[in-house]
Design a protein around this nucleic acid. Structure first.
Length: 747
DNA sequence: ATTCTGAGCCAC
DNA sequence: AAACGTGGCTCAGAAT
């Protein structure tokens, strides 16, 4: 046993600093006094600490430290032993244990390093790497860096795996350790022909990052990206809790691997010593290749997922890499003027709100709720704008003021003030990350990666409001052109359900919503289409809401909310809708039955799965009047999950197919973009946005139209697209107007 | 001082 | 009893 560990009485600490300088006899006497003073055994000390108000984390730390002390793995700091054993001391001991564990993991990593992990630090070695890679057709690559910002961080080493030879090289170039390393530019230039050799297939985990790092650091373009093990995993299981390489290796390769954070904490890889770096980095290459073999085997087993992955998802990665690096030109001057304008308005509104609500924080829902209730003299469930405040705002002017204030602070805080601060000094533009499988249905997600806690100053390009869009501009000599898939999801619903009314409407080129409304309300088509001013008629508006929300499983309550009608009326509406459109009803029921049998649904000709394991569960019976009985909490949770899966199934088939159509169309459109020397702006679900040169002509528009409508055909339904041109995002004219000579609005 | 959670709200 | 699918960002307030 070491130190003062143990479960018995506290030992006398004759070496305590408080006793220093006293002779032995005197020290012993004082130590006894201190013990008397504390008068506490270790058991009593632990009992006291455990009896305190501890958070779950603290509770766990107490347990860990107690056990470590009992096992003699750690003891009290002699300098503190004269004082009463405290929670603060336990926390410090816990931190020491954590650090010990981390160093242990690093030691384990070095000790277990296989002989086929090879470090390259001289020219001869690098020649050996090149010779080995020349003989390979499949190469794993991975760059090690100082961090995860592709604009500011730098490459400090290359991992390259010769997969057939089964040797995994690490070539450090910029580690801080003093021992000799090859020059980074020299290494890049020697490796360049390998990376740019299109006859070799390259594999990486989260390849987009490595592509961007190689491009930004050395101007290297990897010619033939063949597999991304992170992206493949998103198709193998979109419900995976983590897509970190080490987590996947632990789970699927049964190789207990620690994550970067577990091993190194927050430091950059250049701080890591070379011996440890080799063991860690070469293992990346090794694991990535093993994961690739595993994934290829499993993806090939089901439907057409492998083919879809290789022909759509893999080519998407270099394309998206390019889109992210391009970024967005921001009109900073306008942003400043606009911000000043909004701030002034906000101040005025805030004054008005203060007079009514008092000196509260207008951004606090809790404080607001109380103030509103006092002001209007009635209870409200929440301060939600659409659900609660808007309906009441007809009667209360102050609520109209509040709604204005809300909307302006949102515009200012989330967009107008925030966006200019995110401009990267390296490019003078703002950037996004676009994750092609960031959602469970296969849609893109955009912005910071919510799976990690690191923020890199990225914007979400997919949720820009009409106000914020005006800050995004085309550079001199360019326009922004956007092409949407008109009524993309409705066409897909028509195609999947083969519902005649919808199919016929699209075939005749008439408005689908108006046709449905005309059928449903038994009114002439014209009365169900648009008003003279171009806005929707009530019938069309209602049909839009009913069609999409019903498809996605809205209940009579949700429908009642969004239509602004009574619950029973909404239910009648919903029931008669499905009664009339039997094939839409059939599509939903068939999809749900399939999910119930199989625990998943197919998307797009067996190209991907949406796994819904909860769909297979059996509903629990909850007797009338027992809904509030805590005994049925679990049953309720289980039933809720089943209902949710039943709503997700049909939605995933529609949304997922739409995402596939957008992706395939993007790949086709990229050929045009490259040929014309245009650039990418972004995909926004049912819309594709580009930067084009201002010499764009009729043929170019025709070609965009052709690519949008002909690349991914739907069963029984034509595609259609609307194309617009603008200098400032949102301030657009149609392509038709443009070709007739209408002036594009100036900046 | 930093991290987490919920309310609210932006997009399709 | 909850009641419409897929995301991400900001702020307040609590937890750590």
């Amino acid at each position: 046993m070491t130190g003062n560990s143990g479960t018995g009485h506290m030992r006398l600490n004759v070496r305590s600093p408080a006793l220093k300088g006293l002779n032995k006899g005197e020290g012993l006497r004082r130590a006894v006094e201190q013990k008397m003073l504390h008068n506490e055994t270790f058991d009593e000390a632990w009992a006291r600490l455990f009896a305190m108000k501890n958070s779950p984390t603290d509770e766990r730390r107490l347990m860990v430290v107690k056990q470590a002390m009992e096992e003699g793995r750690i003891g009290r700091d002699p300098d503190r032993a004269s004082r009463r054993f405290s929670k603060a001391e336990v926390k410090d001991l816990y931190a020491i244990l954590e650090e010990q564990a981390r160093l242990g993991r690093l030691q384990e990593l070095r000790d277990n390093k296989p002989n086929n992990y090879v470090m390259i630090t001289d020219e001869e070695g690098l020649t050996e790497v090149v010779d080995a890679l020349r003989k390979e057709s499949v190469i794993v690559f991975d760059v090690e860096t100082t961090g995860v910002d592709v604009h500011s961080d730098i490459v400090v080493g290359h991992v390259l795996s010769a997969t057939e030879k089964d040797v995994h090289y690490y070539i450090p170039t910029d580690h801080k350790e003093a021992s000799p390393q090859l020059d980074r530019e020299y290494v890049a230039n020697i490796l360049r022909p390998i990376y740019e050799d299109a006859s070799k297939g390259f594999i990486a985990h989260n390849a987009k990052f490595d592509l961007q790092m190689l491009y930004n650091n050395f101007g290297i373009t990897v010619a033939n990206l063949m597999w991304d093990t992170q992206e493949a995993m998103r198709l193998l299981n979109e419900n995976e809790p983590s897509y970190a390489l080490k987590t996947l290796a632990t789970k699927y390769l049964r190789d207990n691997s620690y994550t970067y954070g577990d091993l190194f904490g927050q430091i950059g890889f250049d701080e890591v010593d070379l011996e440890t770096a080799l063991a860690y980095a070469a293992k990346d290459g090794d694991l990535t290749y093993r994961l690739y073999l595993f994934q290829r085997h499993h993806l090939a087993k089901h439907g057409n997922i492998l083919e879809y992955f290789e022909t759509v998802e893999m080519p998407m990665i270099p394309l998206v890499s390019k889109i992210e690096l391009r970024g967005y030109d921001i009109d900073t001057e306008r942003a400043e003027e606009y911000a000043a304008e909004i701030r002034e308005e906000i101040d005025e509104l805030q004054e008005e709100l203060r007079r009514e609500f008092g000196d509260i924080n207008m951004n606090s829902p809790a404080q607001l709720k109380e103030a509103i209730e006092a002001s209007i003299g009635r209870q409200i469930p929440n301060t939600n704008a659409n659900k609660t405040l808007k309906p009441l705002s007809k009667d209360y002017k102050i609520l109209r003021t509040l709604l204005d204030y809300r909307s302006l602070t949102k515009t200012l805080g989330t967009y107008v003030e925030a966006i200019p601060q995110l401009i990267k000094k390296q490019t003078g533009r703002v950037h996004t990350e676009l994750r092609p499988n960031g959602t469970v249905t296969g849609r893109f997600s955009s912005g910071e990666d919510s799976e990690t806690s690191v923020t890199r100053g990225l914007i979400n390009i997919q949720n820009q409001s009409p106000e914020s869009r005006t800050l995004y501009v085309a550079p001199e000599g360019h326009y922004i052109v956007n092409a949407d898939f008109s009524a993309q999801e409705v066409r897909i619903i028509a195609s999947l359900s083969q519902e005649d009314v919808l199919i016929n409407a699209f075939a005749e080129g008439v408005d689908a919503y108006a046709t449905l409304a005309s059928e449903f309300f038994n009114k002439p088509y014209d009365e169900c289409y648009k008003l003279p001013d171009g806005s929707d008629t009530e019938y069309r508006k209602q049909m839009k809401v009913v069609l999409l929300s019903s498809m996605y499983g809205a209940s009579k309550y949700g429908l009642s909310d969004s239509l602004g009608i009574g619950v029973e009326e909404a239910e009648e509406f919903r029931l008669s809708f499905f009664d009339k459109y039997r094939k839409i009803d059939g599509f939903i029921k068939d999809t749900q039955a399939f999910a119930k049998r199989n625990g998943f649904v197919w998307i797009g000709d067996k190209s991907r799965k949406r796994r819904l394991p909860e769909a297979r569960n059996k509903r629990e019976f909850i007797p009338q009047g027992k809904w509030n009985d805590p005994k049925y909490e679990n049953a309720k949770r289980k039933n809720r999950a089943i209902s949710q899966a039943m709503r997700q199934g049909p939605n995933a088939r529609v949304q997922g197919l739409a995402a596939m159509q957008t992706k395939k169309t993007m790949l086709a459109l990229d050929e045009l973009v490259e040929r014309k020397g245009w650039e990418w702006f972004a995909p926004i679900h049912d819309e594709i946005v580009l930067y084009v040169t201002d010499d764009i002509n009729e043929d170019d528009f025709a070609e965009i139209d052709r690519v949008m409508t002909q690349t991914y055909l739907l069963d029984g339904v034509d595609n259609a697209t609307d194309i617009e041109v603008q200098r400032r995002w949102g301030d657009s004219i149609t392509a038709e107007e443009f070709l007739k000579g209408v002036e594009v609005p100036k900046l």
